[in-house]
Write a protein that binds this DNA or RNA. Structure first.
Lengths: 239, 239
DNA sequence: TGTACATCAGTGAACGCGCGTTCACTGATGTAC
DNA sequence: TGTACATCAGTGAACGCGCGTTCACTGATGTAC
């Protein structure tokens, strides 16, 4: 009764001799589904096994422990993110435009793989962080750097690429994180559109800031900002 | 043996007749300390009681349950954040500058109250979210709106204030969140300085983007951006 | 072509522990008379 | 001014359950001879 209340999967047949790996795939898929449906706390070893239609200890045939299972799920999710970002790049040959597309792909992925994204980005509560997540973050940064570098080369931005990238990344990350954790805030009808807005905002801000950082000791007044930005806006709009 | 291994607080004397509230304060302080030292998983009812030097059930004399205790801790932290942001405002009468100062105060608070901040901003894992956190987020947004509104009034930004604010907030939130969860990334020597960088970046980006959004159908090329931004940067630097 | 044997792919039941929470009690402190 | 009584501020011990993990077993599938 107690155990059955979790179970959803039909009794599945046992795999043939060399096909043990099949169960591993099914477990991963079930775990991902559980995460999507109920968030991290829904990912219980018992639940994963039940969803596949297999006994609980069978999970340990393919994963050392629960953390190992979670790692595997994250690894898959991350591979998906990498693929989407690479695909997004092959749309435009204009560097700034390409950056925008990648940022949009990033947001798209995060919003559609909420829990995996959070699992990858936020340290696993209470556990010693597996270095998997750290590696993923580093790889992600490298990806983004590869998108920002052409902007620097094209003269849209100046300065240290990693620093520029981190700022843009932070903005995108904050946007999707806040959207996921506080959906009740006024994001408008289309979350993806808002994320794109933030992507453009951070790109433009980074480009402009990289030109004036450290130039003048006392920052310009609001009036000056308004005047100069008005001119810039007009020029950008009229082209 | 098992229970004692947690205990740190000396045996404290029992409060006088009307002074029962004293324990409540001590429990809150102990909980905050535990959070700071060991993160959310370190916040155990037993540990809080032991730290104060009181038996575990004594906690339930002042808090309905664990969630109630956490709520109270968050409420305090949030009050601190509100105070710091208000204080930060009283430094400059230039709207854009004031916004920068508030953003810096925001980052400062988040970096120094990491766990409380995350507790407030991220939904409590697995639990039905108490509306406290939701209310706090709303209040925070209102605070930030109050800082952005003068920028709109002064003509530095245009458009819907809440939308502008959300973008800037998202950037700041992402910055501190990423710093807290991935300290190994190359943030430079001074995290607060980087957070300020992101604050300026988002402010500038928002201001510029609010002038060109929806203006031209096809976005300008990287070359155009570079040229226009160069001119704007020169003008801002020479004032 | 049959038969013993290794091994693969699992299962049922239970262990064990961390941790929030409750129960029944206790000793000190003030108050009514 | 003493004494019975209410109540406040706690305590010690245990309950109970969720959940990861392990133990000892089992039946099907292929392989050696």
């Amino acid at each position: 009764m107690t155990e059955q209340s979790v179970s959803q999967g039909a009794r599945r047949g046992r795999a043939r001799r060399g096909e043990g790996e099949r169960l591993r795939e099914e477990l991963l898929a079930a775990a991902a589904t559980l995460l999507r449906e109920g968030g991290e706390p829904a990912l219980k070893v018992r639940a994963v096994a039940a969803k596949v239609g297999v006994s609980t200890p069978a999970v340990y045939l393919h994963f050392r422990d629960k953390a190992d299972l979670i790692d595997a799920v994250c690894l898959r999710a991350f591979a998906g993110l990498e693929r989407e970002m690479l695909d997004a790049a092959t749309g435009s040959d204009d560097p700034f435009q390409a950056l925008r597309l990648r940022a949009a792909a990033y947001a798209h992925f995060a919003l559609n793989h909420a829990v995996e994204y959070q699992l990858l980005m936020a340290p696993r509560s209470g556990q010693a962080r597996s270095d998997l997540a750290g590696d993923a973050a580093q790889a992600l940064l490298d990806h983004l750097v590869a998108a920002v570098q052409p902007c620097v080369d094209a003269g849209v931005m100046r300065g240290d690429v990693r620093e520029l990238t981190l700022g843009i990344w932070a903005a995108m990350h904050g946007c999707v994180t806040l959207m996921l954790s506080r959906p009740e805030l006024p994001w408008g009808r289309d979350p993806a559109a808002f994320a794109e807005h933030v992507g453009r905002m951070s790109g433009l801000g980074t480009a402009l800031l990289s030109r004036i950082e450290g130039v003048s000791e006392t920052p310009p007044s609001s009036k000056t900002f308004a005047r100069v930005l008005d001119a810039a806006g007009r020029k950008l709009g009229s082209t």
